[in-house]
Design a binder for these strands. Structure first.
Length: 958
DNA sequence: TCTGGAACGTA
DNA sequence: CGTACGTTCCAGAG
């Protein structure tokens, strides 16, 4: 063991990145955005492994620059003849540097020098200081740096096998001690660097000479005395040898901007790493990284120092105490957490059944007032009075604000009433993380939550709509600093982790499942949660104001959350009989088409396995592969491909396969729905309010936003969604062509606006302009072309994409687009302007000011940039539509209540709302819905709403 | 058992 | 080489 506790890990970044690149297959590491990441993945993994196993105290990554080095200057052919860097490697070095930055690891480069020289400089410094050093490099030049304290880790094949070279190992393998390695290499030459050596002289001969004459210098001086062909060659190659010697020798005294001490290993920076790993789609690595660092820096996560004294939580069931507490803090925001108490512990392990009832029986509520001085006068007076009481003990430790924990399992009716009134009081301000989830739990317990002024989940979303994970602890870590990571000491580690990794949206057991009730630790955890909620709210609030999101939070998202909560609780009724019969019907269709398909090929195949299908289609049936799309696993077997093959070959297998696919997909949907039916005979989806980057909602468990509608068979499924008992009928209301209307409004294109104002059929109108004929003479074919283009424009469609979709030539598609833009120039100008403006601002905005940040608009990577440009085109349109229907839901909801109607909103499907109509309310509801949906936003074009009524979703769609 | 890819449903 | 989502199955990795 070295005398110093310090251990330096210094890595030749370029050489290891290359090793990683060639060790891992590129195809398996391709992000959705088209960036290859295999080198980044391999490199980061290796780095983590080294940190975990070698326990360095200091880490440095050395990189080459693109500019020439002194070696190139003195020898133009230096490193010449190397193959061009593969295209897939592009950008990966930069990403590795970003990973390093996020890990707070020093990245060092030096103009005119190579990474090896940097490695040599640090290794030498560390050695002199008595540090232990581990060099990781795939470049043999670094062999010369090995000493008793400095080990070289040299990969021998890929990344999996490495040699640990100490001086003895170097001598054994290369026949000379480390310091003599440059001498040997000078004689032998180094093909990787394009440095020829002495012909016919290999390591053996070279080593012999070095032993004899002490060094290559000595050999040169005595060159005349060396006999034989080798001696002759040596004398002829003296110039090369001299040059090699000069170039092989690493410089050990560069002047570098980072000192050894600067390179001390630190806690990683999640603010940098989280978005980066999101972009790289590195989820495993993210986990591994934080595990590694948690093990490495236990003190930073285990014992954080809260910036304020923890609130003092008292458990109470006393109505009077609760009442007094609430009065004392009246008017000031109160942090609230709704969690499972100890009696609910076993819940997480039991199977999912009657969750609502079981959760409701195991709830605890923790109330934590703000620590800062934002109390009302009454509260201040009360606080002062308390101080007087404590005057006898003025030098006591600073204590946190008093907080309350209530176990809802044991609350008596008096306390229950006090709590219920306060929770339901819209004038009593509350801070929550995930209102919809907390509200749902309380609703199951018969309590209503109103008056939320903050939801840190939604605030986080409005600030960073592209972010994936808004778990409480994640936000705390990011916005309040890593040192206050609550997960490590909240006593809810496992649950929170599970939630963080699995969360698509709120689930029953979500991030606020800190168990309260019994132990002091639990109370501290609850106290901390509440305190952090205040702090987080503060931090997010500042960001939110900066990003124009405050109004959206208060006036749109929070009210919406309360509506969504009701919709989720209500659910939609289904007909189990209809589902059953559809299930049977589709099952029979699946079986029939499978048998027919098997008959064609003569044996059974897994028709759902693209891999097996490839074999059957292109090997057994020998269908033509010319022009067939390829994907990572080989030839594509998607519908488009199958259709094309069918036209070419008329092979019946394809027909049966496609039928099988259709029926299977439909049956899956039906099966999924049957499994989702609750004890009340209804399906309760969950809306994710913080998932879609544009501002849309998404639906899950089950997804009711992708129930089939395009085919007759699919529509049968919609027929199984029915009006529930006690209600008269279903009513659907959808916006017609809302995205094109928004396009017309945003672009201000007079022709388009005119079309909507005139109330003409949009596509016929547009078609008549584009094709120069009367609207009444537009053929169905022309209409569908124009329709495809109109919608495509909002997605950033190219002429190529249009040609592919319409099955026409690129030229024709381009002409069509030109003609379109000729007639609707405002649209073209707008689309250009959107991207320009977004590049300038860094974000897009919807009509309601919802922003989407698109940093990739200025990316060097063309694919990334173009993807961001298309997102920029689409975000204001899709997002404005999302805003409008959200606004409409709020308007409709409040009107329903104002008019005292019993009818209720059940579902939202992006541009459509589905209601359950109470007896006798049909006309009133229709009027109300049309009015409020139609006036949700003031556009330059009318917002048309189409309403339908029927006893099933399918029927109501007419 | 977990994860990624392919496929496909919706607006 | 058209945006935004969620779910399912298979297959490879562990």
């Amino acid at each position: 063991m070295s005398s110093s506790p310090n251990k330096l890990l210094v890595i030749d970044g370029h050489s290891m990145a290359f090793r990683a690149f060639y060790a891992l297959p590129t195809e398996s590491f391709l992000t959705d955005s088209g960036q290859y990441t295999n080198a980044v993945h391999g490199f980061t993994n290796m780095l983590l492994k080294l940190i975990r196993e070698e326990l360095p105290t200091h880490v440095i990554l050395a990189f080459d620059l693109d500019t020439p080095t002194f070696r190139h200057t003195s020898y133009a052919e230096y490193k010449g003849g190397r193959a061009k860097t593969p295209e897939e490697f592009r950008g990966q070095i930069d990403l590795i540097k970003q990973v390093a930055e996020g890990m707070n690891i020093a990245v060092v480069t030096s103009e005119g020098y190579e990474a090896d020289d940097i490695v040599a400089t640090y290794a030498t410094k560390a050695d002199t200081a008595g540090w232990e050093t581990l060099i990781v490099s795939g470049d043999r030049d670094t062999l010369q740096l090995v000493t008793e304290r400095t080990t070289l880790m040299y990969p021998t094949s890929g990344l999996s096998k490495v040699a640990m070279l100490d001086p003895a190992a170097v001598e054994e393998k290369y026949l000379v001690p480390p310091l003599k390695y440059p001498d040997l290499a000078a004689l032998v030459g180094e093909s990787a660097d394009n440095l020829p050596g002495v012909p016919k002289v290999g390591p053996k001969t070279a080593a012999k000479w070095i032993t004899e004459y002490g060094s290559t210098r000595g050999i040169i001086e005595n060159a005349d005395r060396i006999s034989g062909k080798a001696g002759e060659n040596l004398r002829e190659a003296l110039a090369d040898v001299e040059r090699n010697l000069e170039l092989n020798l690493l410089l050990r005294d560069l002047d570098l901007p980072v000192t050894l001490e600067d390179a001390e290993l630190q806690v990683p920076d999640r603010e940098v790493l989280d978005p980066l790993f999101d972009a790289l789609q590195f989820n495993q690595i993210r986990e591994r990284l934080f595990e590694t660092f948690a093990a490495r820096f236990p003190e930073t996560v285990v014992a954080p120092t809260p910036t304020e004294a923890l609130p003092e939580v008292t458990v109470t069931e006393d109505a009077e105490k609760l009442s007094e507490f609430l009065k004392a803090h009246a008017g000031a925001p109160m942090a609230i957490a709704v969690c499972l108490d100890r009696s609910g512990e076993s819940l997480t392990t039991k199977p999912k059944r009657d969750e609502a009832a079981r959760v409701a029986e195991a709830l605890a509520v923790v109330l934590v007032p703000s620590a800062s001085g934002d109390l009302t006068e009454a509260a201040e007076a009360a606080a002062e009075k308390d101080n007087d009481d404590d005057a006898a003990n003025p030098a006591a430790e600073p204590t946190g604000v008093p907080a309350l924990a209530l176990s809802l399992t044991s609350l008596d009716s008096a306390a229950d009433a006090v709590l219920a009134e306060w929770l339901g009081d819209p004038a009593a301000p509350k801070l929550v993380h995930d209102i919809k989830d907390a509200g749902k739990r309380l609703a199951w317990r018969g309590l209503h939550l109103r008056g939320a002024v903050e939801d840190t989940l939604i605030s986080g979303y409005l600030i960073q709509p592209d972010r994936r994970n808004f778990a409480f602890t994640e936000l705390v870590t990011q916005y309040l600093g890593a040192s206050t990571d609550p997960a490590s000491y909240l006593g809810c580690h496992d649950q929170d982790d599970a939630e963080a990794s699995s969360s698509q949206g709120p689930d029953l057991f979500s991030s606020q499942d800190l168990l309260t009730g019994v132990t002091a630790e639990d109370l501290d955890a609850a106290a901390l949660h509440g305190m952090l909620l205040h702090q987080l709210s503060q931090a997010l609030g500042e960001q939110l104001v900066e990003r124009n999101g405050e109004k959206l939070l208060r006036e749109m998202e929070i009210p919406l959350a309360e509506i969504l909560l009701q919709m989720e609780l209500t659910g939609i009724a289904v007909s189990p009989e209809k589902l059953d019969s559809l299930d049977a019907e589709f099952a029979a269709a699946i079986e029939a088409s499978a048998q027919e398909a098997y008959a064609v090929v003569g044996h059974e195949v897994k028709l759902g396995s693209p891999k097996q299908l490839q074999t059957v289609l292109f090997e057994e049936l020998e269908l033509p592969t010319a022009g067939v799309k390829k994907n990572k696993t080989g030839y594509s077997t998607d519908v488009e491909t199958l259709q094309a093959l069918l036209i070419k070959t008329q092979n019946d297998f394809l027909v049966h396969l496609m039928n099988h696919r259709d029926s299977t997909k439909l049956r899956q949907t039906v099966t999924g729905l049957m499994e989702a039916v609750n004890g009340d005979g209804r399906i309760h989806t969950t809306y994710a309010q913080t998932v879609a980057a544009t501002g849309r909602l998404s639906s899950l468990n089950p997804n009711l936003q992708n129930i089939p509608v395009r085919t007759a068979a699919g529509r049968k499924i919609r027929d199984a969604f029915v009006v529930g008992p006690g209600y008269e009928t279903l009513l659907t209301a959808d916006y017609s062509q809302i995205e094109m209307r928004i396009m017309a409004h945003l672009s201000g294109d007079q022709a388009l606006i005119e079309a909507f104002r005139a109330g003409e059929d949009l596509h016929n109108f547009v078609g008549s302009r584009v094709f120069g004929v009367e609207a009444s003479e537009i053929t169905p074919e022309q209409r569908s072309k124009v329709k495809a283009m109109s919608y495509g424009l909002a997605y950033g469609l190219s002429s190529f994409g249009l040609s592919k979709q319409l099955g026409i030539g690129v030229d024709e598609a381009r002409n069509l687009m030109n003609e379109y833009f000729e007639r609707f120039g405002g649209v073209r100008d707008y689309l250009r302007e959107v991207v320009t403006q977004a590049k300038q601002d860094g974000f897009t905005s919807t009509i309601f000011g919802r922003r989407r940040y698109l940093p990739d608009l200025s990316s060097e990577n063309r694919q990334l940039r173009q993807m961001a440009e298309r997102a920029a085109l689409n975000a204001p349109i899709q997002g404005s539509a999302a805003d409008i229907i959200k606004q409409a839901m709020i308007g409709v909801d409040s009107a329903l209540r104002a008019e005292g109607l019993e009818s209720r909103l059940l579902l939202q499907v992006h541009d459509e709302l589905i209601f359950e109509v109470a007896a006798g309310e049909r006309d009133a509801l229709e009027k109300l819905v049309t009015t409020h949906m139609g006036s949700a936003a003031e556009l330059d074009v009318p917002l048309d709403v189409h309403v339908g009524v029927g006893s099933s979703w399918h029927e109501a769609a007419h």
